[in-house]
């Protein structure tokens, strides 16, 4: 699974939001988009998801142009967006249901694996924020599409839960590498999780720098305190500071 975005432009009326954005995600790679608020990261996701078409430029999936085609990616939004009338298990299977027959056993397995086995038949209103995000992530993971697009999935969580969820995501992802395109505001989150980072400019967004993250996997818990990590963090901070 390889995704590449090639010279994409998008405007809403007179506001130019994306200006010549090009990037790619390789098979099994974790790529992060880092950019100021309102720069157009979600808009880029909507283009990849096919909700809108780019004004100019192309989106390729495995070499095939897919501008405006829907149902080709799996998606995890900022809010967990679980259906309140479905049990946790039925929610987890929703992504599959849209395009194939749901694999119930697999859903149960995953819930057990992430410590939600006892909540299979509970409703979302009975879960905590972190648990809901876990369910939303498993739902995205079980969806058959190969590319997962995660739009600031942890930004609504408190700091501690957020750290816990980052470790949790890392451990799962490092075991079952899927191609992930991840959006975040947090420099630290980007460095901790990704293989590569694209830094976007203020609106209209363009890629101003691409960073290859050198830290080996599995990533250690003490990683954020190493000198190298801090040096990268400072560098990205400087780049973004020039933007804002």
């Amino acid at each position: 699974m390889k995704v590449s975005i090639d010279g994409v432009y998008k405007s809403f009326g007179h506001t130019e939001v994306l200006k010549d954005v090009s990037l790619s995600v390789n098979e099994g790679e974790f790529v992060t988009l880092l950019g100021p608020s309102g720069s157009g990261k979600s808009t880029l996701f909507h283009l990849i998801g096919g909700l809108m078409t780019p004004d100019k430029g192309s989106i390729f999936l495995n070499g095939e142009q897919v501008n405006g085609k829907r149902g080709l990616i799996s998606y995890m939004p900022q809010q967990p967006s679980l259906l309140p009338w479905r049990t946790v298990l039925d929610n987890v299977l929703l992504g599959q249901e849209l395009s194939q027959k749901p694999e119930i056993e697999k859903g149960k397995d995953w819930l057990r694996k992430v410590g939600l086995g006892d909540y299979e038949n509970s409703y979302p209103s009975e879960l905590s924020g972190g648990m809901k995000q876990r369910v939303a992530f498993i739902r995205a993971l079980l969806s058959p599409q190969n590319l997962m697009c995660l739009d600031e999935p942890f930004s609504a969580l408190d700091e501690l839960t957020r750290l816990e969820m980052q470790r949790w995501l890392l451990s799962i992802w490092e075991e079952h590498r899927r191609s992930i395109l991840f959006v975040t505001h947090s420099i630290e989150e980007a460095l901790l999780l990704s293989d590569r980072i694209y830094i976007l400019s203020q609106r209209p967004a363009a890629v101003i720098e691409e960073i290859n993250v050198p830290f080996s996997r599995p990533r250690k818990e003490a990683l954020p305190f190493t000198d190298q990590f801090v040096a990268y963090k400072r560098h990205i901070y400087d780049v973004l500071k020039h933007e804002v």
Partner: peptide
Amino acid sequence: ELKHYLNMMGATKYQLFWK
């Protein structure tokens, strides 16, 4: 928010109605 999620996942109009 839920509608947005289902649209991003490529749900058809029919699925949007029933689900």
